[in-house]
Design a binder for these strands. Structure first.
Lengths: 119, 119
DNA sequence: TTGACATATATAGATTGCCGATATATAATT
DNA sequence: AATTATATATCGGCAATCTATATATGTCAA
């Protein structure tokens, strides 16, 4: 099943920051990793990702450096700064608040759904 | 806490359809109900809601009729059609797929989070 | 060896969802 | 009488994403 693209609005940056929390990555790698981790629910386009990365760098949330791969190809790696880590925490909390409210309504307006606590 | 508006993208229509599944409602009532049910996480604007309702009506997902309230005021009620019920089911499933994938990544890429099954 | 495909980054243009502003009108409150 | 709340509607604009396009190199098969 393919997800209506508009559903993705707002959380893409959060997901990118989350990937970079684990380790430094280059753009193309992020696209592949997101697709793999989400069972192809996310199919982020290069035309979406690179402007976001440039924007995050301008805001100081990430820093980039170039590194040569085994095959001689130059890749541009991104590293999460302390400012980026703080941004991730804020956006993660926003997602919890938002998704909990949606679930509360879609599940019949009943009790709180604290899915973020699941492990 | 106020949610980044961009996070809301895509789910607004689903929430409106869900409200109408319970009972017929008029626009202003939907705005108030969404705010109340979400503890003010959602603050849907009239400029957002009415175009969505008109669009849903054009697509046959809802039907409207006017009714006079006790105070003499005319309200425009919306009723969910069978086509709208089907659309709601599709969009609800999309939300489950999407939010599960986001949670899977934000929670460390671990196991599935089937929060939609909670009651 | 050459052509196709995957890898890798980048940007411009178009689309879409939502909001702010504005307009209109009536009921309730002060 | 003036203000606020109720109630619906539309236009203009912003922001997020996609499509399309551009460029360049590595890999693999014909």
């Amino acid at each position: 099943m393919s997800i209506d693209k508009s559903l993705l609005a707002g959380s893409t940056t959060t997901l990118i920051l989350k990937l970079l929390e684990e380790k430094d990555m280059y753009g193309y790698q992020m696209i592949e990793t997101l697709a793999q981790k989400s069972d192809d629910t996310f199919n982020l386009k290069a035309g979406t990702l690179y402007p976001i990365l440039h924007n995050l760098e301008n805001n100081g949330a990430v820093e980039s450096y170039e590194e040569e791969a085994d095959n001689g190809r130059i890749r541009k790696y991104y590293h999460l700064t302390s400012k980026g880590k703080k941004l991730l925490q804020e956006k993660h909390q926003e997602w919890i608040t938002y998704s909990s409210a949606v679930n509360r309504i879609l599940n019949g307006g009943g009790k709180l759904c604290s899915n973020h606590l699941m492990k």
